[in-house]
Design a protein around this nucleic acid. Structure first.
Lengths: 218, 218
DNA sequence: ACCTGAACACCGTTCAAGT
DNA sequence: ACCTGAACACCGTTCAAGT
C-alpha cells in the first residue's frame, strides 16, 4: 500500500481508460482532465501520447473496430459479409456511444481493413464495380442504420424509452407513428429484423451476381 | 444610422441566426456567446426564448425539417415516398451539418409528421405491419446513409477530399478501397445511385405488397 | 415579461519548466 | 523522452438585479 508503483502512461492505457469511461457514462463524459485523473496523471501528460482529443476519439473507434471478427480467407462470400455485419453490430452494442462517431469521422486503418474485407468478398462474388459499390453501401447503411436505431432510445436520453415516446404523441396526428413505436417496443423473437433484412440484401446481391455471371444482363 | 431600432428577440430570429452560422461554419461554430453577439444581444437574453443549447439545436433541425416537401394527399404511394426521400436529401444538402444531428436526437413534431407521412403512404400500399416497418427503415437508412456519405468528404475535415484519402492509403493493403474511393471521385451522371437504389427499394416493396394483396404469401 | 452582467464550474490546449 | 503546473482563451448556465 505504501509502495504503489504508477504504471507508465501509454497510448494504449489512455485509450482503454477512455473506453471504460465512455462505455459507462457516454462519450460526453470524457474530458482530458477527468481522464487524466482516472489514470492518476497530470492532465497534460496525456498529450505526450495523443495529439489531441479528436485523435483520442479516433483511436478509441479504431480500438473497438479491431475487435470485429473477420471471416477466414476461404469462406463463402455471403457468409463472410454476414459475419462482419453481425460482429459489427455486436461490437457497437458493447459500446453504445460508438455508432454516432463511426459515421461522423474519417476511418483509420482498422476500419479501412474492414471495408477492404467487405469489398473483397463482394468482388469474389463476381459483381461488377457499380454493383459492388451498391452492395457495400447497402450493407453498411443497414448495419449502421439498424444498430443506431436499436440504440437510439436507450442512449440519447438515458431516461427515455420507446413506450414513453409513444405515450407523449398526439394519437390524432400520429396514429401510424404510435403503432410503429409500439411495434418496436414489443419483442419479435420469431424473426430478428436485423438478420432478416441483411439476408434480403445478400440474396439480392447474389441474384445480381448470378445474372451478371451468366451474361443475361450487362 | 443614429436611430437603429433593435428588433426584439424571438425564438424564430434566434433559430434563423443559428442556421445561418451553422450553414456557413458548421454546427461546431455555434456558441451561445457568439450567437448572441451576432444578434446584437446579451448572451443570457437567448435563455428567455430557448431552454438551453440542446433545445436550440433541436429547434434548428425542426425548422429545416419543416421545409421538406410532402406529397399532396391523393398521390400514388411510390411517388409520395419518393418525393419525401428526394426532398429530404435536397434539404440535408442545403444544411450539411444536419445529417449527423438528425439521427442523433429524438424527433420533434415536424419529423414525426414526416414519419407519419411515409408510414401512411406505405400503409396505403397495402403492406402488412412488419413489412411497413421494414420499408420505413429501408427508406430512412438509405436516405440518411447515402446523404451522409455524399457529405462526408466535404464536411468532416474541410480540407479533405476523397481523392486525397485514396492517395494516402497503402495500395498493397487496400486495393479495393482505393478503387472504391476513386469510383466515388468520378462523376456518374448516367444513373444517380441515390435514385437508383431508392427505386430498387420502392419496387421491391411494391412487389411485396402485390404478393400480399393477392394472398399468395402470409 | 423580457433583458442582462457577474459569477460559477467547467472546457481543450500552448508553453515553459522540470526530471 | 516523458511529465506537469500555470495560464490562456474559451464554454453553458444559474442567479440576482434591473426595466
Amino acid at each position: 500500500m505504501a509502495s504503489e508503483q504508477k504504471s507508465p502512461l501509454t497510448q494504449k492505457r489512455i485509450v482503454h481508460a477512455a473506453l471504460a469511461v465512455a462505455d459507462r457514462d457516454g462519450i460526453h463524459s470524457i474530458s482530458m482532465r477527468t481522464l487524466a485523473t482516472a489514470l492518476d496523471a497530470g492532465t497534460m501528460s496525456l498529450y505526450n501520447h495523443i495529439r489531441n482529443k479528436d485523435e483520442l476519439i479516433d483511436a478509441m473507434v479504431e480500438d473497438i473496430a479491431a475487435t470485429i471478427e473477420r471471416p477466414e480467407p476461404g469462406a463463402d462470400w455471403k457468409q463472410g459479409v454476414r459475419q462482419i455485419a453481425v460482429s459489427t453490430r455486436t461490437v457497437l452494442h458493447r459500446h453504445p456511444w460508438a455508432v454516432e462517431v463511426w459515421s461522423a469521422r474519417i476511418p483509420g486503418p482498422q476500419r479501412w481493413t474492414l471495408m477492404e474485407a467487405i469489398l473483397d468478398q463482394l468482388a469474389s462474388a463476381g459483381l461488377p464495380d457499380d454493383l459492388t459499390d451498391l452492395g457495400l453501401h447497402a450493407v453498411l447503411n443497414h448495419v449502421l442504420g439498424h444498430t443506431r436505431q436499436e440504440l437510439a432510445a436507450v442512449r440519447s436520453n438515458p431516461g427515455t424509452h420507446v413506450q414513453d415516446l409513444a405515450a407523449e404523441l398526439d394519437a390524432e396526428r400520429f396514429p401510424h407513428v404510435i403503432d410503429h413505436l409500439r411495434y418496436h417496443a414489443e419483442d419479435h423473437p420469431t424473426h430478428d429484423s436485423f438478420l432478416f433484412v441483411l439476408d434480403l440484401i445478400l440474396d439480392r446481391l447474389d441474384g445480381m451476381a448470378r445474372r451478371h455471371g451468366t451474361g443475361t444482363a450487362h
